[in-house]
């Protein structure tokens, strides 16, 4: 129990900076609260939640977000795995490559969203693939590809670390046992890098889930397809309906929690402390 002496202060601060806003969010979500007028608050009970949960637009946005998450994570894992396998063999240019892998991730998400939007509207992608006027949906796809591009390098890096954890003696033993390449990758490599894949999937998934910059950038008034974080932002900071926004936020938190609750046991994410 001695450890708690060390943990007490960090945890007090952590709970203060996360728990307090969450608590205030729950409290706000039970009120009708315009952001501009703090005095005009009235208690409305669960009305905000009823509004959110019965709103077709909200559920459409949630579905859109989840589809984006699914597509981005699956593609990132696949591309990242291919790159990781390829980069493992790299010896000569490795120091340089190590830097290149991380640069997209270090680029501000706003910047990546801007250049990718430009790429599909007026830039190279439009030029190469003869896209004219991709519309709001096309722009959303564009910024999503940007997000995909931004996160692939770091995914590859995590997967590469997992790949390097496969002991070479284990591979040698498998070859000596007469395992085919397919059997080796399925029964030796995959289990050994399981934790890496699990963590990459979970972290990238929840990271993509909360992304706001791209959708916010390409959002147009009256757009049909919007993402859930965008709706939260819009309700809170454009419509200034704090109570409704807080209710959406709480639902968003619950969805994120559900995602984690599904992914962690599914991938058996184990992080031995």
């Amino acid at each position: 129990m001695k450890g708690w002496r060390w943990l007490a202060l960090p945890f007090a601060v952590l709970l203060a900076v996360t728990g307090w806003p969450i608590g205030r969010g729950i409290w706000l979500s039970l009120h009708s609260a315009p952001l501009t007028n703090p005095d005009g608050r009235t208690f409305v009970g669960a009305d905000n939640y009823t509004d959110v949960l019965t709103n077709r637009g909200w559920w459409l946005a949630v579905a859109t977000t989840l589809v984006i998450v699914l597509v981005v994570v699956v593609l990132q894992l696949l591309i990242g795995l291919v790159f990781a396998v390829a980069l493992r063999r790299l010896t000569l240019l490795w120091p340089l490559t190590r830097i290149i892998v991380l640069i997209p991730f270090a680029l501000l998400a706003v910047v990546s969203a801007v250049v990718w939007r430009d790429a599909v509207t007026t830039g190279f992608a439009a030029d190469w693939f003869r896209l004219d006027d991709v519309g709001p949906f096309g722009q959303l796809v564009g910024v999503t590809v940007g997000e995909l591009w931004r996160g692939t390098g770091i995914t590859a890096l995590v997967l590469l670390a997992g790949l390097l954890r496969v002991p070479s003696s284990l591979m040698a033993a498998a070859i000596a046992d007469g395992a085919t390449a397919w059997q080796r990758s399925r029964r030796v490599v995959l289990p050994a890098m399981g934790p890496a894949i699990a963590v990459a999937a979970t972290y990238r998934g929840l990271d993509t889930f909360r992304i706001l910059e791209g959708p916010l950038l390409v959002d147009q008034p009256g757009a049909a397809i919007r993402t859930a974080p965008l709706l939260v932002w819009d309700t809170t900071f454009s419509s200034l309906e704090l109570g409704l926004g807080a209710a959406m936020s709480m639902v968003l938190l619950v969805i994120a929690l559900l995602m984690a609750a599904i992914m962690v046991p599914l991938f058996r994410v184990r992080r031995v402390v």
Binding site: T18, I22, L206, R210, W233, T236, A246, A256
Partner: peptide, 14 residues
Amino acid sequence: LLPVLALAGPITDQ
């Protein structure tokens, strides 16, 4: 991993 956005409104209010 928490969506920070979900806390942005309450924090602003605070």
